[in-house]
């Protein structure tokens, strides 16, 4: 009832807020990036406002001032003005603590949709002063706060929840500091032009009839098989990790892959065209699950998509290539993918 009465009264406030955000966005749009390279926080990128503690501090100063006038206490004036001076110094120091830092977006490791993408930002302090208590506020994890000594690089992280596959843009990032006294907060708001690659969430039908279309001889070295152990080879990128000889690792500190001969290596194509599923996203999810499955089982698998075909293989890099292909299916702007 009360809400219904008050809501119309608040409507202008809502409008004003909306308008304010629009103006703020326009203001920031021109200055806050995106910066794909390292960006130095110039004065125009560092904003500062009193914190709530700072506003209460102002009220405290007013009360002290009025008290001093009323009781004609000279030292009261002195205390009031000393604290006012302190507030000024604090403002300058807080701003100074943020200005001049260099920021660089370091991106995030690929994750599956629904997981949390963890972005990293590199902060570089090439000035002569230590920077204290620089904070990256986080929604889903405790705020990360670091000191950056002069001449050092430090990484700060933040989490983003992901919903759908593709490229996730975290948008503008806020980095702030209240150092030294918490009366002011200085912050920057920049777009560091980062994207996280989001694989389609692996889903459901993992073990249902996997429509594998087998074709022998593609992409495989002659004579290699899966059944009879035939010795060790030095590990090469792309060798499935299931074949690493852990005994040898323990003995020599080097990686060797077990070599097999004989038999036909299990080989499968994860094929867009044979999947019987109408929804594109569902289809991608199922394929994602199949990739994981094949990878885990140590099978050799290839990926066939309308726009790309990846030859069968097994390994972390291969897995990534395949999942990336799924993630970026039908996504136009892929300029941020490395």
């Amino acid at each position: 009832m009360a809400n219904r009465l008050i809501a119309p009264l608040l409507y202008p406030v809502v409008l004003l807020r909306r308008e304010w955000h629009r103006l703020l966005d326009r203001f920031l749009a021109n200055r806050s990036g995106p910066f794909s390279e390292s960006i130095r926080l110039h004065s125009s990128l560092v904003y500062i406002l009193p914190t709530r503690a700072g506003m209460i501090f102002t009220i405290l100063l007013l009360v002290l001032l009025i008290g001093s006038i009323n009781y004609t206490i000279s030292l009261g004036f002195m205390l009031t003005f000393l604290l006012a001076g302190l507030g000024n110094v604090a403002m300058l120091m807080t701003w100074r603590n943020m200005a001049g830092l260099k920021l660089k977006g370091m991106g995030a490791k690929p994750v599956f949709a629904g997981e949390v993408a963890k972005f990293a930002i590199q902060l570089e302090n090439d000035t002569n002063d230590r920077r204290y208590a620089i904070t990256l506020p986080n929604d889903s994890m405790p705020d990360e706060t670091v000191d950056i000594p002069s001449g050092e690089l430090v990484l700060l992280h933040f989490n983003c929840h992901t919903k759908s596959r593709g490229l996730l843009n975290p948008g503008r990032i806020r980095i702030e500091t209240e150092f030294p006294v918490g009366l002011f907060v200085a912050w920057t708001w920049v777009d560091l032009d980062m994207r996280a690659l989001i694989y389609p969430a692996p889903s459901g039908k993992k073990n249902t009839t996997v429509p594998v279309s087998c074709q022998s001889g593609e992409g495989l070295a002659e004579g290699s098989g899966l059944e009879d152990f035939a010795g060790l080879n030095k590990y090469q990128a792309g060798d499935p990790w299931q074949r690493i000889s852990w005994k040898m690792v323990a003995r020599t500190d080097e990686l060797f892959s077990k070599k097999f001969t004989g038999g036909q290596p299990e080989l499968e194509w994860i094929d867009w065209f044979v999947l019987d599923e109408a929804s594109v996203e569902r289809r991608l999810s199922i394929m994602s699950a199949m990739i994981l499955d094949a990878q885990k089982a140590g099978r050799l698998y290839g990926l066939r998509m309308p726009n790309i075909e990846i030859k069968p293989d097994n390994g972390a890099q291969h897995r990534h290539e395949c999942l990336k292909a799924l993630a970026l299916y039908n996504i136009e702007d892929t300029s941020h993918v490395h």
Partner: peptide
């Protein structure tokens, strides 16, 4: 150091802030 830096600002205010003769209300 902060207080040292705040002191010049304090002195200016102390010397120049108009000293309204009190009391503003009954004590």
């Amino acid at each position: 150091r902060m207080i040292f830096q705040a002191t010049p600002l304090m002195l200016i205010l102390f010397l120049l802030f108009p000293r309204i003769p009190g009391p503003l209300w009954g004590l």
